[in-house]
Amino acid sequence: MSRVDAAAIRAAFRERGFIADEAFGTALQLALALEKPLLIEGPAGVGKTESAKVLADVLHTRLIRLQCYEGLDAMSALYEWNYPRQMLHARLTETDGSSLEQREAQIFSERFLLKRPLLEAITEERSPVLLVDEVDRADEAFEAFLLEMLAEWQVTIPELGTIRARHKPSVILTSNRTRELSDALRRRCLFVWLPYPSLEQEIDILHARVPGLSERLALQIARLMHALRGLSLQKAPGVAESLDWALALMSLHRDHLDAKTLEQTIGCVLKVHEDRAVLDAHRDAVAPILSDTSSRTEPGGYGLETDFGFGSVSAPRG
């Protein structure tokens, strides 16, 4: 996997429903070619985590995920001894006459080692994709530990000795910028900013991920999402929200978006109560995007009332 070019990566990503632009494709190519970790920053819900999953799929390798959280310590990221099992083993073999050294070697063998994501990534046969998700949520102390790990790719377990990586994993770090990352970590990594997709990209993504979505609905969703992201919302909707919404509208058998449908399904998009007030204040901005025909008179459209009132529920079309 030494020379993959950006175009091939983008094509492979597109096959798997992930629309990557040129800059992002090149960044992935660089990360693979230079064997450096790639730090992806961007707003929530633009596919930072998803890109790592897709990359693992493209490279036909395992994805090992380390989800960071506040209070994550080195031990729960690296390894732990299985103490209950060790104790049980020690008790059971108390009388079998083996020497102290033998018993110790048994107790501190790989059988009793619980591998956590980082150790797992190092000991993997084929170079895996290691996803360090939301690294900004971990504390500074863990960040320092991670730095050492990314530089050395080796772990010393006092009872077993030093374990060196057979193959360097491809590392992807993601951050939502809830905290400033240290310069040292940034300098170890390649950096790429993943923004919200453009209108055309979003339509592409909708078609790639929600097969059977009508042209018109995709355009409406993408335009509305664009308009929403321009408002000063507390939680701007990401791509994940547009996909959810598209699925919701599909399952309600809508082939277009009008004011009433928007009202009914807005919960898929805006997740904070105050944001709905913001949207209400900017009704004029979204009005041109919505179609003025009501869902009932639209030929082929199914209103909520007809579905539930008369029980004529049908499978989603397309």
């Binding site: 800059a23 660089l30 310069d183 940034r186 390649l190």
Partner: peptide, 12 residues
């Protein structure tokens, strides 16, 4: 540009 940007820049 695409190749140099991830390498040389560290922040947004």
């Amino acid at each position: 540009r695409h190749v140099l940007r991830p390498v040389l820049s560290g922040t947004r």
